[in-house]
Amino acid sequence: ILQRTDTIKGLSKVSFNGLITDQNGEKDTSFNGELTLTVFDKAIERQTLDNQGLGVVMTFDTQESKLFKGKASITNGEFYIEFIAPKDLRIAYGEGKLSFYAQSDTYEKGGYNTDITVGGIDTNAPEDNQGPDIKLYMNDTSFRDGDNTDESPLFMAFIEDEHGINTSLSSVDHDITAVLDDDYQNAILLNEYFITALDDFTKGELNYRFENLSPGEHKITLTAYDNYNNSSTATLRFVVEDNTELEITELLNFPNPFSESTTFSFSHNRSNQYLDVELQVFTTYGQMVKQLNQRIFATTKTSKDIIWDGSNNSGVKVKKGIYIYRLGLTDPNTKTETEAYNKLIISN
């Protein structure tokens, strides 16, 4: 860190300029990448549990409460990062800790700094009574409230607030939590899943994978707090499909007619898994002119991975006219199969 570190107070805006150095302590101007900064509150006293029942209990200090974790760009060995400290930091003054992890395309570096004081509250902080903005999705950002998902969907939350999101574990009842189907007794703590956007402490996202949800309607409710402890809550409804049978619900190609190449688009009831695709193109007399086999990873329930350049299996362009095509789909996990047919026109 280049500058002298001031006291980190609750609600204060903190910024750091720093360098990545080489083995000689000089700025490493060749280093370009990302820095992850973790800011810890003061150490707290813990005791061992005497699990073996020997009557021996030891006291030790541990620095485990994170006030902030964010990312900054490193350009030519230099970085700049800023954030707002949460109101929930422990008011008593004491020694905090900065932990640095830097990564480029070729190597990694780490470091820390304990020459920093944490405590107090910034009495001149601007007023804020507005909670964060929250957007929720399942599997991808095209998801809409009430849409269908598979049994193990990826829950996605995008959270934004001008004063940053509270992920401090020193807070009480100010965590990022998700509640599935109103089961508040088993709320899911998501602080550690939240990742601050690069070079922007005001927003970030979290991804959490649910596993083996039962078929039918479900509801997920997420609550998040900003660093002023203003809260917001958002709810997303979704339906888990019974995916015993593999289905193709829509099949088309575009452009159609085409002369150079065409892309095949198909919708199905699988996502976030591999699928085996077989495309066969036939003349109107039933003669097969082309077969394509490809394994794809279906991130969403609409796939656009198959492209045909209009050539036959020998690499020769086929004649203009109307053709029938068949798309076969196989789930390699369940070995279930399905197929669909449509027409295309070659106009060359």
Rank of each mutant, 00 (worst) to 15 (best):
I1T: 15
R4Y: 14
T5L: 15
S12T: 07
K13W: 11
F16Q: 06
N17S: 11
Q23S: 13
N32T: 06
L35T: 05
L35K: 03
T36Y: 04
E45R: 15
L49Q: 10
G55N: 00
G55Q: 00
L67W: 01
L67C: 07
L67D: 09
I74M: 04
T75R: 10
R90Q: 12
I91G: 08
E95R: 15
A102V: 05
D105Q: 13
D115A: 13
D115K: 11
G119H: 06
T123P: 01
A125Y: 07
E127I: 15
G131V: 07
I134L: 10
M138L: 09
S142K: 10
R144E: 13
R144T: 13
D145G: 01
D147Q: 03
A157N: 05
I159M: 05
E160Y: 07
D161N: 12
E162F: 13
H163G: 11
G164W: 08
I165T: 05
N166R: 10
T167A: 08
S171L: 02
V172G: 09
L180Q: 01
D181K: 01
Y184K: 05
A187P: 00
L189K: 11
L190R: 02
E192T: 13
I195D: 13
D200T: 01
K203Y: 03
N207T: 09
N207F: 12
R209G: 01
F210H: 00
E211T: 14
L213Q: 01
L213P: 00
K219A: 14
N230W: 00
T233E: 14
R237A: 06
R237W: 05
E241Y: 07
L252R: 08
P255D: 07
S259I: 03
F264N: 02
H268S: 08
H268N: 12
R270W: 01
N272D: 06
D276I: 03
M288G: 05
Q291W: 13
Q291G: 11
Q294E: 13
I296P: 06
S303P: 10
I307D: 09
V316G: 05
I322D: 10
R326N: 15
P332Y: 01
E339K: 10
I346T: 04
